[in-house]
Each structure stands twice: as C-alpha cells, then as structure tokens.
Design a protein around this nucleic acid. Sequence first.
RNA 1: GUCCCGUUCGUCUAGCCAGGUCUAGGACACAGGGUUUUCAUCCCUGCAACAGGGGUUCGAAUCCCCUACGGGACGCCA
Length: 457
Amino acid sequence: MSQARVRFAPSPTGTFHLGSARTALFNWLYAKHTGGTFVLRVEDTDRERNTAEALTVLLKGMRWLGLDWDEGPEVGGDYGPYYQSKRSSVYKEHIEKLFAAGRAYEKGGAVFFKLEGERYTEYDEYHKAEVEKVRTEPQVINDVVRGQVVRAEERDFVIVRSNGQPVFHLVNVVDDITMGITHVIRGEDHLSNTTKHCELFQALGSPLPVFAHIPMILNSSGPGKMSKRGDGVHVEDYERRHFLPHGLVNFLALLGWNSKDDQELFSRDELIAKFDLHGIQKGNARFDEKKLAHINTEQIRRLPEEDFLELCIPVLQSAGVDMSDGAYSEQVLLLCQSKVRSLMELPDFVAYFFDEDFSFDSKAGERLFKKGEPLDRLTEVRAALAKVDDWNAESLDQAFSDLAESNGQDKPFQWFPVTRYTVSGTGGGPDLVPMLSVLGKERVLVRMDSFPYRYPT
RNA sequence: GUCCCGUUCGUCUAGCCAGGUCUAGGACACAGGGUUUUCAUCCCUGCAACAGGGGUUCGAAUCCCCUACGGGACGCCA
C-alpha cells in the first residue's frame, strides 16, 4: 500500500461537530494505515467567525481524540503555511494561471471559472431567473466508495469574490495540488462539488487525487443530517461527559465503516491495521447514543489499570471527591473498573468510600427490611467481623464461612445484603468482600454501629 | 424544479462487485431464563430485515429497468 498524503481541512466555527470528527478520524486512520502523512489545514478564508478561540476548540478536540497531525498548525511542515488566510500568494499565482489559459474571467468585480462548451440560456426553476448554462463534457469521478460518478457542471462559478478573497472551491483545489494530497476523504455533501473541483484540477493541469466520499451522519431521530446545534453533537459534549476518547473514536469508526469480520471493539492499533477505504459504507448512518455508551463501557473494561486510574482522577476531583489518600483511592477505583458503565457515574458510585455521611438508598432499604430480621443478622455479622484481626479478603471470607457454619448454614448469603447496605447505603456495587477489605475494619464497624441511628425510619 | 448519491432487523452492519453454501450472520437495544450478596458482570434463549414492481436466469438480497422513499448539492458559505 503506497503512503497516502491526506488532509483534514476544517473551517473553525467554535465547535467540533461529530461529523467533522469522523471525517478527521477516517483521514487520520488512512494516513496511519498506509504509513502516510496526515495534514491539518485550516480553511479560514472569509469570515469573522474564524477566531483564535474557534481554532483552539478544534485543536483541543483533535488532541483529546488522539488525532495527531504530521503537518499543520503548531507543528509546521514543508508544505505550509497551513492556514488558508496566509496563502494568498499561492492562490494568486494559480488564478493568474487560469487567466493565462483562458479559463477565468472577471465579471462584476468577481472572478469566474470558465467552463468549456456550448453556451445557452434557460429559465431556472431554482433561481427563478433566466441563467446562462454551458453544455460541458461530463466529469467522471472515480470514487473509492461509490464507484464511477458521472456529472456535468453547467454554470460558470465564482472563484474570487469581488472583495478579492478566493472562494472555497479554488483554495481547496489549489491547496490539494500544492500540498501533494493523494486522497481526498470527505463527506458526501461534497460529492456534487467534486465536478467543480475536477474542472479546476484539469484546468490547472494537475492529476486528480483519489476521492472517497463517506456517508453522512443523520440525526438519531427526525429528518436530515445531524444538526449543528444541540447537546451531544459536538466532541466537546463527550469530553465534558467524561467519555473515553477512544470510546468515541471506536464508535465513530463504526459509523460508516466496518471490518467485515464482525469485530466491533478495537484498540487504536487494531483500528489502524484494519481500517481501509473499501470497508466504507455507502448509505448514511444514524447516530445511536446507546451503542456509543456500550462501546464506551467496553473500552473502560479494557483499559490498563494505570490508564484507568489516570482517567478517573480528574473526574473525581471535579466532583469534589477527597482523594488525599492516594493509595486508598487507587484501591477503591480498581474495585470499580469492571462495575462502572461510564466515568460520569463514578463519583456517585464511589461516594460512600470517601464520605461517612453517605446516604441510604430507600428502595434497597425497603427490599432489605421486607424479609427476615436484618437487624439481628447485623448484630451477628458485626460480632463476627469484630473478631477478624488480620483484615483482608481472605480472612473476611473465612469469617463469613465460620459465621454460616456456626448458624447451620451452607453459605453466608443471608448476612451479605445487610452488610452491604449498612456500610454503603446501596444494594449494588463492587464485590462485597473486597469492598469490605478496602473500606477497612474501623470504617466497617463504625458504620454498622451507627446504622440504627442513621437509617431513616 | 434540476442534478448526484443511497435504500438488508427499531439502530449500526455482514452478505451484493465474482447469482446457488442465506430457512439472511453479528452487534446495540428490547423481552424471557440462568449464575450472582447486587437494579452490575457473565451465560443462554427469543424478537426482528433483503422498500415495491417488473425483467434476465434452472436459480436473485446479490445483475438490469421503473417507481417510491431517504439524503445531498444547486451561495461572491465551507
């Protein structure tokens, strides 16, 4: 596989849309897969909305997702500058080339690209006006995803505005040429634009890159492509909700691409190894948060302990959890890695480990008191645990077994629910014995003793 | 309105290019069951789709045509 030079060319708008993120991801994956180069180019022609803050959001999002670029802002490269606003001279040169070739003309202060072919005028229903059209030779686009797409451009189009600013179509093509881009991987919404781009490539005497138009991401409900506004449509939303960057990456990769072998959970390296343009889907995809949540959960489970701990720290700190006892916090978190479904729920999930004033879940309490004599069981288990000197999972297991045996029971199950509830206030959580072991003898006994006074009756 | 792209379970998708092995496979979700101290995990089972019509063929989810529906483009936005 030859090394590809691909680019992600966003226009900073102040947010980082998931659709853009997926386009960036596919480009990044393809560059990595082929051992090629991933270029980040900022399309900031036009506009006051292209602020420094908007660019920061984008770069931060890219870095959070782990999509590092080989050339572009802040890292440089041999094909710069990588901001379109700084490439005026390059565009000027190419516009002159078009004039020289008789493929550009001025009208109303703007520069138009001149199509070749027979001209005629026609009433246009869309523009509600009589317009000039050209019968051009149709362009044949060889798209890796869609096969051959044949389409003819029928109107001359603006390449430089009357204010002197070059237009997207022109700068996009000129940059792709001058930056040596080999593969253009972008959203299907650009497919119709591609005929314009092909005209420009040809008029400038440059070979066409390989095109791959990837499907759109549609709203999970309702019509149309994924909206630009709202919660859950931007990368920042998922960062704020403490999703794993790789969880989002894995999910996004599956939206419009698959590995053909039923594998859905990938490490970053597996994704790079398996990603291929031919696995890209033609049909549009609908965004499904439930599947995202599932993949995120699975990726939490697969995290190496160190990475898991590192990711947890900021989540708990921002929730105000006191983690001054590092070794203890670490034990608590490792207890939870296989139980928790998202990092977001972690602070609530571990609250009782760090706060003696934890609350009691009323539903679980009702269930507990509905059957048997929990207070009697509590007295028994309290006495049994008080005798444990060497407080660890093994000796605790033994203490429970002895307790069962001395009461003529096979297993100590009837003491478990009340134990869990009095020390944690919940009906669920990490495995009981390891949990008691981590909490420590003193905490456990104190909580058991205070339970009758603290439990709201 | 014109042009382009698409259409397999509710959702993401495999299969389609090289027609038979497809009573259409996997995953999420959902439902039921089992394991379990746990509304967690795990395991099992179930539910559920080739948009419609025509053609080609011994045979079509797979090839061709039409229709319908969905998406996109048609900006001196990108």
